[in-house]
Write a protein that binds this DNA or RNA. Structure first.
Lengths: 367, 367
DNA sequence: GCTTGGCACTCTGGCGCCGGGAGTGCTAAA
DNA sequence: TTTAGCACTCCCGGCGCCAGAGTGCCAAGC
């Protein structure tokens, strides 16, 4: 795992050129071509010697005798870590992306837009892990709507404009009659008023704590309606399904790539897109890390991602990292172009979300 | 387009066997095999003569000289229309499906469940068009939540438990200050109370009409808050995005099928799954028709569905058709098995939704 | 000692050929 | 009308061949 040190400048230059050429056209690169392209004025024979060394180091391999060489995963890793120069994007492209973000107004839309842009610009698959509901967000309003004898709808809105519906299902009693949620809407109204007045502006985490406290303490002397309302509010405060937080777009872009021509691999990949669990896991891991992260081939640790690479970057609201986005494509992807794309998209998304959040907060009389 | 009449019994029997065999193992069927399988005690030579006729009628074709025959789309059509005997499902299978439906409690869940079951049981792709919000549904409750200076959240709940959030965006004014939605939550509360009392139990269609009427009539002397609330309510009553009403599951099942091995076709298909428009169109068309409907190959009229067939069936709540579901797969699919599967799933879904609706309605004091 | 030209070797991929197998269409007889 | 026979066609897999590309190694040169 000390790949850079034993490499001479020349070897580095050759490896770099090799990876670039291979990324470009997907064909094993031979010594003659490499000698010409590397700009080092070397003969093919010399190049061959160097390639032999690189092969011994596990950075390149030959698909068969007398094909040229292609990078191994470790080769890509060295390339990405120490050889590649990311080219900043054209100003025009930056502008274009920026404009797209401006078109969206609410957070959900903005995030969807980011995912779409990622896949469109990369011509690969874009993924975004949307922010989990933030327990430090401030409570704004809660509403209760009785749907039927045993179903109660709870709507929770936070100061930053997140809305969450949850249907509370009464534990089924075969006996049936006189279900649990037989309150009038006026009663429910009063309950929600109580919450709205008591907790407005309090962080959800604190709401949760105080609810727990009250439910412990006053146990018996609470009215039945309030006890229910508290339980319902508690349910609404539970974290939501993580699966709803992954956006994937442009899956079908992957079907054009010769590198992923194998149906079995492709199918595994698409199943991973549907299952979402592994991808969320990966994005979650890279959220903690901060900054652009790159997983090459097996490095991610998921079978479904074999022969694939993932470039991720976290994004933030108001300086706090809240989610991760990225692109998925074949190991042979245009890292030089895509790293800045992912990076920029994360920045733009952060800006857009932060601007929205600030705008909303200005509105909030409590801060 | 009068395919059945000129066919002799023998020809029909042979066509039937041919299609069955071909569906079974995907290989062109030769005269020898057909003579043996059809149970007609004919020689291969006789069979060849019949095949020649069928070919002339455009019901079968030979991929090349001296391969056996395979059905054409018209051949499948005849098979489906007049030859195939649908086998009712095993009681055990019916029971299994039924149990799955019982596990779900709210309409959304039930519909997702149906989609999942379709793809699982068919090992193809399941699609469900969820009910559009029903304008004859009864109004239950509306809520307004101010999210920021220029964003207002409207939550609409109907008696049957459908919830709809919509964010109303104020027309952007560059001037900025004193945005449009500067009301206190008490004011908004009052507005929503007004609606809830006035319209409870009224059908959405009527609410819409009465709102329009009032907005026309009282124009000037309305308080600003009420005028806004009416506009907001009106917005919430607008029909929602049709794209949100299509569920697709088991897409990746299609990647295993040799019939759809071609990447180009597969890609087009997956793009159709993402776009949703064409599929919704198709489902919508077949909703009107009522009963199980089958589109074979080009019949559907969409490029993306070439070499694919679609089996659909509408489902209903309380006797009214509200949506359609179905499966998509290669033209060579097991019609005999899948037609009853789709039919049954539609019935079970109808039952489950109707039961839920009835349960809710019993609860509703107004009926 | 590194670099280089030369050379033999190897592997792939396309092409043409061949033979077996499967199935057809036609014809003539039952 | 059905059937057996037969010649014909086409696909497909295997085989050998060849050109092309690239390698590894060796010996000569800077």
């Amino acid at each position: 795992m000390r790949p850079a040190s034993p490499l001479s400048n020349r070897a580095e230059q050759l490896l770099k050129t090799l990876v670039e050429r291979y990324i470009e056209d997907g064909q094993p690169v031979g010594s003659r071509m490499l000698a010409r392209q590397a700009g080092l004025d070397l003969s093919p024979a010399t190049v061959r010697n160097v390639m032999s060394d690189l092969e011994e180091l596990g950075l390149v391999r030959a698909p068969h005798t007398s094909a040229g060489r292609i990078p191994t995963e470790r080769g890509y890793r060295v390339f990405v870590d120490s050889l590649l120069k990311v080219k900043p994007l054209h100003a025009s492209e930056v502008r274009r992306l920026q404009d797209e973000f401006c078109a969206a107004h609410d957070p959900q839309q903005i995030i969807e837009c980011a995912s779409g842009l990622l896949s469109e610009v990369s011509r690969l698959t874009g993924i975004v892990m949307a922010p989990r509901r933030d327990d430090f967000a401030a409570f704004r309003q809660i509403d209760f709507v009785r749907l039927s004898r045993d179903r109660l709808l709870v709507i929770l809105v936070t100061q930053d404009g997140q809305v969450q519906n949850r249907v509370l299902q009464a534990p089924s009693r075969p006996g049936g009659a006189g279900g649990e949620f037989d309150f009038t809407s006026a009663e429910l109204q009063r309950a929600s008023n109580y919450f709205n007045e008591t907790f407005s502006g309090v962080s959800l985490a604190d709401v949760k704590l105080r609810l727990l406290g009250e439910m412990e303490r006053e146990h018996d002397d609470l009215q039945r309606i309030m006890s229910l309302a508290m339980r319902a509010a508690g349910a609404a405060l539970e974290p939501d399904e993580p699966e709803d937080h992954l956006l994937v777009s442009g899956e079908s872009n992957l079907m054009d790539l010769p590198d992923l021509g194998d149906m079995r691999k492709l199918r595994r990949l698409f199943e991973a897109f549907n299952t979402k669990r592994d991808l969320l896991d990966l994005l979650d891991r890279s959220m903690r890390a901060g900054g652009v992260k790159i997983f090459i081939g097996q490095e991610s640790g998921y079978q479904a991602l074999e022969d694939c690479s993932v470039i991720t970057a976290p994004y933030s609201v108001d300086g706090n990292i809240v989610g991760t986005l990225g692109v998925i494509g074949p190991t042979r992807m245009a890292y030089e172009r895509l790293i800045p794309v992912v990076d920029l998209t994360a920045r733009l998304l952060s800006n857009a979300l932060t601007a929205l959040e600030r705008g909303d907060r200005l509105e909030d009389p409590r801060r």
